[in-house]
Amino acid sequence: MSFEQLFRDYWWLIFPIGGMLMGVFGMFSHHHHRTETLRILKSYADQGKEPPAFLLDALKTDEDRAMDHAFGRGRYRHRHGGWGGVVTFAALAVGFGYFGYQAGGNASPVFSALGMAFGVAAAALFVLRLFSLMFGPKPRHDDDKRYDRVDD
């Protein structure tokens, strides 16, 4: 009984813990990618050859890319404007908030708390989006043709 009750009370911990595991996994695979790139570069260097530009490009961080490419021309811009996060978080906030409101006082306050947290996140993302719309780079008409660009 106690384990079932524990699961009932803390099932939502699955999501943050899953997110953490995904983060750690992402870190490992990123590290694997970068060290493999170094290994290939080393084999080019050992043969005395000039490595291809895209291998060197793979070592850059996203920050480097953002600084290298003139403002608003990077490959890593949000392709549909970044409204997806706002919509997702707002939907989660509404869902959890509604559930918390429906259940009233006899449910755990977790739903209301989650709804409030997602609501704050959605509002913050919305404000950030508005800022980047007002002051950010304008999309270029040929943006969709530029994803395979490699330049230093």
Partner: peptide, 26 residues
């Protein structure tokens, strides 16, 4: 590993590529 690669460039007397000089933390 990056330092090792830089060393192998220097041992051959080749210039170290600019991408390796960067502080590419993530």
């Amino acid at each position: 590993k990056k330092l090792e690669l830089m060393k192998s460039y220097l041992d051959r007397g080749q210039p170290v590529p600019d991408a390796l000089r960067r502080n590419n933390h993530f």
